[in-house]
């Protein structure tokens, strides 16, 4: 089975891109499955079910979404293999700008949209910097110049990435993306493979449920902001 990880900020168009992509992959119905990692709620299950795509959704809830992802990804892969998929796509929400759900050797796609602001590519962390493919959506409603500047800013922080413009509504551009996805390698397990980037350093008292504010309650891994004159 092939595995592809798709990540991106909330509402950047991940689900639309994946739906169009599955249409464009030209593979048997039911041979592509999706696992969606979300935080609290998700409305994507319906979209996938309507399209007849097998989907599994997981909510991280009070657990750090990245830790949740890493601790469940191998199970997701085994679910996919047992379900007889040829391709499994994992979709994960924006997480925290610092992290990325990418694994060495596993094709990774970051979806961002043109409306998110011209400097956004430079601000998004490993989620964009470590992706193999950066998909830019919503290009149909901004000017050509803005599309070009946006792509340029993506290239600045991820020089090696393939940048593809995709229209999540019409599917324009999906063909290129589908062709790249066919190059993803086959896997049987992720065991012993490594994340491309570490998940956040824990544990501090707030990780374990502390809610009170003040130095007396702060323990464990901490980082303090320095203000002038201190």
């Amino acid at each position: 089975m092939k595995l592809v990880t798709v990540a991106g900020p909330p509402s950047s168009g991940k689900t639309s891109v994946i739906l169009k992509l599955i249409e464009g992959m030209d593979m048997d119905k039911g041979s592509i499955g999706v696992v969606k990692f979300d935080c609290l709620t998700s409305f994507d299950k319906l979209s996938y079910q309507e399209a007849g795509i097998p989907v599994h959704i997981g909510f991280s809830g009070k657990i750090c979404p990245d830790h949740y992802y890493v601790s469940n990804i191998e199970d997701a892969v085994q679910w996919g293999i047992q379900s007889g998929f040829d391709l499994l796509i994992t979709e994960s929400a924006g997480l925290c700008n610092r992290c990325s759900p990418y694994i060495n050797g596993i094709l990774s796609v970051c979806v961002i949209d043109n409306l998110s602001g011209i400097n956004t590519p430079r601000k998004i962390g490993p989620m964009m910097r470590f992706a193999d493919i950066v998909v830019i959506t919503k290009g149909d409603i901004v000017s050509q110049a803005e599309r070009e500047v946006f792509a340029f800013n993506v290239k600045q922080v991820n020089t090696a990435a393939k940048v593809i413009f995709v229209n999540g509504i019409t599917g324009q551009g999906i063909f290129l993306l589908a062709t790249f996805l066919k190059l993803a390698r086959d896997i049987r397990t992720l065991k012993d493979l490594k994340l491309r980037f570490t998940t956040p350093a824990a544990v501090c008292s707030y990780c374990t449920g502390e809610t009170r504010i003040g130095e007396a309650y702060q323990m464990g891994m901490l980082k303090k902001l320095e203000f002038d004159g201190k």
Binding site: G117, Q144, A145, V163, F165
Partner: peptide
């Protein structure tokens, strides 16, 4: 794939500017 994305420029009626820049800044950025 080398050409893909660089070959075609598009102009459509639905397109808007979203950058908060002056005309000069906008052109300079491009």
């Amino acid at each position: 794939f080398e050409m893909g994305g660089k070959l075609v420029a598009q102009l459509s009626q639905n397109m808007n500017f979203v950058m908060d820049l002056t005309v000069r800044e906008f052109l300079e950025k491009h």
